[in-house]
Amino acid sequence: MNNIEISFIEWLGYFQGKIIQELLRHIQIIAISLPFALIVGIPLGFYISSRPKIAQIVIYLSSIMMTIPSLALFGLMVVLLAPFKLGLGIVPAVIAIVLYSMLPIIRNTYIAINQVPEGMIEAAKGMGMTKQQILWRIKLPLSIPVIMAGIRNAMVLGVSVATFASLVAAGGLGYFIFSGIGRSNLRMVLVGAILVSVLGIGVNYFLLLVEDWVTPKGLKVKR
């Protein structure tokens, strides 16, 4: 036992550089995708929030998209991008993550804005706020917690989908798992599994804190 433990640590030391490299790569893939998901998702959510008919279609389509297995969506991206010579590398991963993580953001933005009570908006109008003011001072602060929950959801999905990047030679933590399984190298698999879990849970937890931090105090106080 002792022997194995020591050698595992030695192994870790040997692989340290690679581990850090793939971890950063993984984070990089998510970090590149997130702004796109936000830039498309939040305005789209706002746009459909006042257009119930379009909203119904968008929400329905996005719920369908969400049920599609992430690997299947990723695979479809690879195929669709191949003619443009983009089927390999970071691009399909980023596009799949953007598409996939946009959905919870759109949905939550839509829900968030529609849950702002009518009476509040009416009161704001009655006090002479402009549309812009209502948006920035009332609607947005009150919907931020729900929108943040959507972003959190999106990021967690991103951590998961980014593991597939290694399947198209784009690296990331998936490398340890997929290559490890292929070579029956349990250490690699273990490192990959642990890191990707920690990353997922960590991102989730960190964004929960952010969520709490951006939630207006008045919404959190207890009766």
């Binding site: 998961s160 349990l186 273990l190 599994a193 642990i194 990707v196 879990s197 849970i201 991102v203």
Partner: peptide, 17 residues
């Protein structure tokens, strides 16, 4: 609630191990 943040591939990997 927290476990939902674990990617499925991690669970597959652990079961493999």
């Amino acid at each position: 609630g927290a476990a939902q943040a674990v990617p499925s591939i991690a669970v597959i990997a652990l079961v493999f191990i």
